[in-house]
C-alpha cells in the first residue's frame, strides 16, 4: 500500500441511545463523513472497558472512538459518569504502552447531534491522517 493513500482504520464504540442514534441521524440527514469509522453498538459507553480499547489497538486499529450521551442525559442515569472517570486515567497510561493517547477519543454526542457526529468523525480521521499508521497488529503481553 503506498504511503500517501493511507486510510486510518477506526473502530467506534457508540452507546445505543445517544451516539448510535446520533450516527443514525447523520444518515437520515445525509451528512457526509469519512468512511474510516466502523461502528460497534454497545448499550452504554460505560460498557466499554479499557481492555476492549487496548485489544482494538492490538488488532491494528489506528484510532478508537468511545462516544456516549452527554453527561446528565445518560439513558441509564449515570453510566457515562463511569466513562468520564475511567478514560482520562486510561489515556494517560496509553503513552506508557506505546500508543499515542491522541489515538483514543472519548466524546459526547446526543441523539439529535447528527451533524456533530459527522464533525467528530471527520476531525478524528484528519487527526489520525497526520500520524503514521499503526502498521498492523501489536504484540502485547
Amino acid at each position: 500500500m503506498p504511503e500517501n493513500s493511507y486510510e486510518p482504520k477506526i473502530i467506534g464504540y457508540l452507546c445505543n441511545w445517544c451516539s448510535y442514534a446520533g450516527a443514525d441521524g447523520a444518515g437520515l440527514a445525509r451528512i457526509e463523513y469519512p468512511p474510516n469509522v466502523k461502528i460497534i453498538r454497545v448499550p452504554c459507553s460505560g460498557r466499554v472497558s479499557p481492555e476492549m480499547v487496548l485489544r482494538t489497538f492490538m488488532q491494528g486499529a489506528d484510532g478508537v472512538m468511545v462516544l456516549g450521551c452527554h453527561i446528565g442525559d445518560c439513558h441509564y442515569g449515570n453510566g457515562n459518569h463511569r466513562t468520564a472517570k475511567r478514560f482520562p486515567v486510561y489515556t494517560e497510561l496509553m503513552d506508557y504502552m506505546g500508543i499515542p493517547k491522541e489515538r483514543l477519543w472519548v466524546q459526547w454526542v446526543s441523539a439529535s447531534e447528527g451533524p456533530i457526529f459527522a464533525e467528530v468523525v471527520a476531525e478524528f480521521t484528519e487527526r489520525l491522517r497526520t500520524m503514521p499508521p499503526m502498521r498492523g497488529k501489536l504484540e502485547v503481553g
Binding site: 448499550p43 460505560g46 466499554v48 472497558s49 439513558h75 453510566g79
Partner: peptide, 9 residues
C-alpha cells in the same frame, strides 16, 4: 437494564 457498566468495572 443491561447497561454493562458493571462489566467494564
Amino acid at each position: 437494564k443491561g447497561c454493562g457498566t458493571c462489566v467494564a468495572a
